[in-house]
Amino acid sequence: MAYRVIHYINQFFGGIGGEEKADIAPEVRDGVAGPGMGLAKLLGDKAEIVATIICGDNYCVGNQEEVGKFIVDTLKKYNADALIAGPAFNAGRYGMASGFACSAAAAAGYTTLTGMYPENPGVELYKANTYIVPTTDSAAGMGKALPVMAALFAKILSGEKLGTAEAEGYIERGVRINTFYEEVGAERAVAMLLKKIKGEPFTTEYKMPVFDRVTPRPGVKDLSKATIALVTSGGIVPMGNPDHIAASSARNYGGYEIDGVTDLVSGKYQTAHGGYDQTYANQDPDRVLPVDVLRDLEKEGKIGKLYHTFYTTVGNGTAVGNAKKWGEEIGKQLKDNNVQAVILTST
């Protein structure tokens, strides 16, 4: 049985118009349109393009929630198995739209693939969520792109286990997948060491990451007028952990008001952190989040005031991707509320 596929393209490849039509809302047409014709031929009896979604690039980028829902509803309506988008070449917004379309479908559990030029901004934004085949920078490369897209798509649809990006010809997604190797880790380690000693080529199982570096801000000139906030990855929460922050690999953070709170007392606050012995933090939560000391400094006039809300999460095994997102959100809230400095406590 052939897999049922929805093809996502933009207004230009859908034959509606160019830049002036980039604001059109998504619409769906039965069967193929534009590059879908070539794609359908290449997919042959392995997969059938049952419908095509055409959407203006600007509309998609600006109305993601609505377009995402439209895509998933269409997949359901056509009883489809997968979504293929583009190729978008080096068209920036089309790349972002194609990447988004695949992401939305993938999040709902559908198989997805798109194609674009490796430097298209859509690659960096969405490569973790979907397979992207590298294409040339312009539509002149259509003839070359479609067979590669069709072949890889068919392979993914068949459920065949994919190899590395290099072996299969897609853009590396940067996603780590667990697998069971032939040998235990210790044997693999000693075998790798022998190759390294002999100067033979070897392949590391994990390429060490290159980190973002943040330049520290200059010091606060006059603390006595500054609003200082407390933010922690040490998991201090009101008793009962109302937002259910997990003990490890947190999925959320919390913000809690401390107006009028001069001391985090045992029984009213606790830690949700599972990476350290909770005994001492639960005895006196100020040990992790020093509200008591900051209230003293406030009273002594050494700081202007303590910000009315503290933000907290658990830093234990929490994905850097999540931490970064939450950090940006917390930072924005603090900045919008004229907080001059933040004391970050960890454990």
Binding site: T164, A165, V175, E182, R188
Partner: peptide, 14 residues
């Protein structure tokens, strides 16, 4: 995910 390499599990990048 024992780090003495006790079992066969590992990971690769896609």
């Amino acid at each position: 995910t024992n780090e003495l390499g006790f079992s066969k599990i590992g990971a690769y990048t896609i």
